[in-house]
């Protein structure tokens, strides 16, 4: 979360923002990241910054993979990642491992 704050505050300052209202994160379900823990960290880390009193908006992305053997694309959970069509474990994760700062809603004063 420290990385999120550092990166977002730098981008907001570069854009001339005086206030960060919302930080939007995209988090894959496979990362095991707990949104509550991020919100707690956000509250602690935002104190004394232009994001203090702002909010965190977290979009959780469900897991999807593609089987490298038969080409099947399928949704799955965190603990069973085999291809449901052919049973292969050689699969490529297409979605669900994201850890991305998608954007932020900021106030930029009129020049």
């Amino acid at each position: 979360m420290a990385e999120v704050m550092e990166s977002t505050l730098a981008a907001a300052t570069d854009a001339g923002a005086t206030r960060v209202n919302t930080i939007r994160l995209t988090i894959g379900e496979l990362t095991g990241i707990v949104p509550d823990a991020l919100e707690f960290a956000f509250e602690a880390l935002s104190i004394g910054t232009i994001a203090e009193g702002g909010s965190l908006e977290i979009t959780v992305v469900p897991a999807r993979s593609r089987c490298l053997q038969c080409g099947e694309e399928f949704a799955h959970d965190a603990i069973d990642r085999r291809c449901p069509a052919c049973g292969s474990f050689l699969c490529e994760v297409l979605a669900g491992d994201e850890l991305v700062i998608s954007g932020a809603d900021v106030d930029v004063p009129d020049p």
Binding site: S7, V100, S102, G103, A104, V106
Partner: peptide
């Protein structure tokens, strides 16, 4: 105003 960031959180580490 909306800032479009699309940055991996662990960009620096990576």
């Amino acid at each position: 105003m909306e800032l479009d960031l699309s940055r991996p959180i662990l960009e620096k580490n990576d």
